[in-house]
């Protein structure tokens, strides 16, 4: 997993609430057995017309948002299905950070497993960021995970965000959970032994 330290990028806005993982990646594309190659299917039903052509009305298809690594959207982002293909698709497309007022629980865990930073900011700040990204050309944000701050070029937006120490530690170091848990293998074994004695 790639460590996350700082990020500076154009911001891509998705001005909707309750964006569910079926929209992030539809079920028909979950049949691959690899972790890679899902970016082409990201927001498929919104990005492409039925005949496969590009939907020019969809925000992310506008040239000014190309190459963006920061997505900003409305509350309850990532709701619904537990598919980890959703963060895989976001990551493969190029997003390393999503900003929203709130995120669904399973999606949050899945992003953390893939080095994607989710930044929760209040509704008002998120609204400002969305509007700036919609109205300006090349609106950029800088994120520093170490100091837990996010700001724009002219410092009109400058916000602190919360993240628990453990998640931060994992993201900054690009660490895998399994190795961390296996440090406690003795305790797992003890637990299993005590359970067998009980039953």
């Amino acid at each position: 997993m790639k460590p996350f330290t700082t990020l500076n990028s154009i911001v891509a806005p998705l001005d909707r609430v309750d964006v569910d993982t079926d929209q992030i990646i539809p079920a028909q594309f979950l049949k691959r057995v690899e972790r890679t190659g899902f970016g082409q299917f990201l927001f498929h039903k919104w990005r492409f017309e039925e005949d496969g052509s590009t939907n020019l009305d969809f925000e992310l298809n506008q040239p000014r948002y190309l190459g963006s690594s920061i997505l900003v959207s409305g509350r309850n982002f990532g709701s619904g299905s537990s598919r980890e293909h959703a963060p895989w698709a976001l990551l493969d497309y190029g997003f390393r950070c999503v900003i929203a007022p709130s995120f669904a629980d399973i999606f949050t865990n899945n992003c953390l497993q893939n080095g994607i930073l989710l930044i929760q900011l209040n509704e008002r700040t998120v609204r400002h960021i969305i509007n700036n990204a919609l109205n300006g050309k090349g609106y950029e944000l800088t994120v520093n995970l170490q100091t837990q701050r996010v700001w724009d070029q002219d410092k009109k937006i400058e916000a602190e965000f919360d993240i628990d120490e453990f998640s931060k530690y994992k993201l900054v170091n690009g660490l895998d959970d399994i190795d961390l848990t296996l440090q406690y293998e003795d305790k797992i074994l003890d637990f299993e032994k005590s359970k067998t004695q009980l039953h």
Binding site: S82, E84, N110, I188
Partner: peptide, 21 residues
């Protein structure tokens, strides 16, 4: 009982545990 992602599935397969807040 709760849903998990694929990385967590791998974690459970390997350790029979899951990390949860």
């Amino acid at each position: 009982a709760f849903g998990i992602g694929t990385s967590e599935v791998e974690h459970v397969l390997a350790t029979q545990t899951v990390r949860q807040n």
